[in-house]
């Protein structure tokens, strides 16, 4: 089982990694230290592993690392930092949209993909956009409120 040298651009930084054919993008990202990308179910059901792959939100547990060769990947941590959080991250904190926090990075990635496409979504559109992300804690109400609140503010994009 031959490994291969592949290039991934993660949150704007280029990485060269050696990956076996059966490594998922999720594993590769976590091995790179991107532990904001969560390993939940490993089979596409929960969305905790969601990342932007060339601008599209996908489950990184279903992508093989080799399939992402050369791709631009953005994770939740790439959207903002503690000092300079992304408006979505601020809104999640302010609304109390994170409890245990396990679903939060994936939720924010799905919300980011939505707002990139549709800056003023309806509640229905927000619910649809995060329908691939499971949350066991919040009951979703505050997550939807956070995304709505963010949408109401003028966008300060990075």
């Amino acid at each position: 089982m031959g490994t291969k040298l592949i290039t991934l651009s993660v949150n704007g930084r280029r990485h060269e990694i050696v990956a076996p054919p059966n490594a998922t993008l999720l594993q590769a990202l976590r091995d790179l230290g991107c532990t904001d990308v969560k390993n939940g179910c490993g089979k596409g059901d929960c969305g905790a592993c969601a990342v932007l792959l060339n601008g599209r939100a996908v489950n990184s547990c279903l992508v093989l690392a080799w399939q992402a060769e050369g791709a631009e990947i953005v994770t939740n941590a790439g959207l903002g930092t503690l000092d300079q959080p992304h408006p979505l991250q601020t809104a999640f904190a302010d609304a109390g949209a994170a409890q245990c926090g396990y679903c939060t990075p994936g939720m924010i990635v799905s919300a980011k993909a939505l707002l990139d496409d549709n800056p003023t979504p309806s509640v229905q559109e927000i619910r649809e956009a995060i329908s691939g992300n499971l949350c066991r804690c919040t009951g979703y109400t505050k997550i939807v409120e956070a995304i709505q609140a963010c949408e109401a503010e003028p966008h300060k994009e990075r």
Binding site: R56, A57, V58, N59, G132
Partner: peptide, 9 residues
């Protein structure tokens, strides 16, 4: 079909 994350792949 599924959800937006799956539909993208």
């Amino acid at each position: 079909f599924a959800n937006p994350l799956i539909r993208n792949r």
